[in-house]
């Protein structure tokens, strides 16, 4: 079994306007040491997918079904069905999370030492000194100098990039098997982004953990992901290893995402491409492919199938599947223009 297997995950929110299908039948696997990137625009369900796995969605408004089986050595545990107290034993220990905005994700009233030590103490029966040692070890690991002294510093005394390093140190303090990084670089400067991505990649190699990297920026994941899941309107629309996805994208939405990345190896004479239109409302999704209203190539499929039936996720090759009626139509792969 893989380290984490998510099967047919469905997350619905009940709102006063109707039921929002935030995540609709998402399945994926992640192995030890692997990096899986989940890419999509805002509202595509990538964050909700991971919050659901972590049990961090308020149960009052979120209706979750499916399974998320974690193999933490003692057989698979379904994170979606175990009790709250059992889940708390896994959260922060086997599965840890780094959030988007390090400015607000750290408690402003406690020193970073307090916060990292607390994260260690929850899951380890040891005295505080030992936890402090571990905290210093981690701070050094993420590249914070003078770690011993910095333990007593408050989050506001750090820059954004440094805070994200602290968040990463805190997430890694219990040697998690899976690290979920939810847009870990969105709130940071471009140069700092690169540093943090490199740090995450280095740490992952060093510690051998699996990583789920959530982002809306394909450029960010190109260098560090093994597999990429592209999400659109709550569904995975394309899944491939990183080389295949960049070389041979099947779904027009993936095309669009790739075309909208600025590239240094292309002449800068034309404007960057954009995907016209808006993502659909998750309350009233179209019957067919959710991307169809924005798709420029739907006319190539006969009988307006794109608008009428939802395509299923079909294999393009052993490590590549795509949810598109165009898959299998002759000449598609060759017609990719980038």
């Amino acid at each position: 079994m893989s380290l984490l297997e998510v099967n047919d995950l469905l997350v619905e929110f009940t709102t006063s306007d109707g039921i929002v299908k935030a995540v609709d039948g998402v399945s994926f696997k992640i192995d030890r040491g692997e990096t899986l990137a989940i890419v999509g625009e805002s509202g595509s369900g990538k964050t909700v997918t991971n919050l659901a796995i972590m049990g961090l969605l308020p149960s009052k408004i979120a209706d979750i079904s499916g399974s998320a089986k974690l193999d933490n050595g003692a057989g698979p545990i379904d994170l979606l069905t175990i009790s709250g107290s059992e889940l708390r034993k896994i959260r922060g220990k086997d599965v840890a999370m780094v959030f988007q905005d390090p400015m607000s994700a750290l408690h402003p009233y406690y020193t970073i030492g307090d916060q990292i030590i607390e994260a260690h103490q929850i899951h380890n029966q040891c005295d505080e000194e030992e936890s402090a040692k571990r905290a210093i070890e981690l701070l050094e690991l993420v590249g914070i100098s003078d770690a011993q002294k910095r333990l007593n510093a408050y989050p506001h005394q750090f820059s954004g990039g440094m805070r994200q390093r602290v968040m990463i140190a805190m997430a890694l303090v219990n040697n998690p098997k899976v690290l979920i990084a939810d847009e870990p670089t969105t709130a940071l400067d471009v140069t700092v982004q690169a540093q943090i991505m490199k740090l995450l990649a280095d740490l992952q190699k060093e510690l051998g953990m699996a990583m789920i990297l959530i982002t809306h920026d394909l450029g960010v994941v190109a260098g560090s992901a093994d597999r990429i899941n592209v999400m659109y309107a709550g569904k995975i629309v394309e899944s491939a290893n990183v080389f295949e996805l960049f070389a041979n994208p099947q779904m027009p939405y993936t095309h669009g995402l790739l075309a909208s990345i600025p590239r240094v190896d292309r002449p800068q004479l034309q404007r960057l491409e954009t995907i016209s239109g808006q993502p659909p409302s998750l309350i009233s999704l179209p019957a067919g492919c959710a991307f169809a209203p924005r798709c420029t190539r739907k006319s190539e499929v006969s009988g307006s199938a794109c608008e009428l039936t939802m395509p299923s996720l079909v294999e393009v090759s052993a490590s590549h599947s795509s949810r598109c009626h165009l898959v299998g139509l002759s000449g598609l792969s060759g017609s990719v223009k980038r």
Binding site: R88, I90, S104, A105, H107, M167
Partner: peptide, 22 residues
Amino acid sequence: SEDFIRTARAKGLSEKVILRKH
């Protein structure tokens, strides 16, 4: 609803500690 409360939950803290301490 603050982000740092979500961080506290992600650490594995119980709701009681989150309410009292954080």
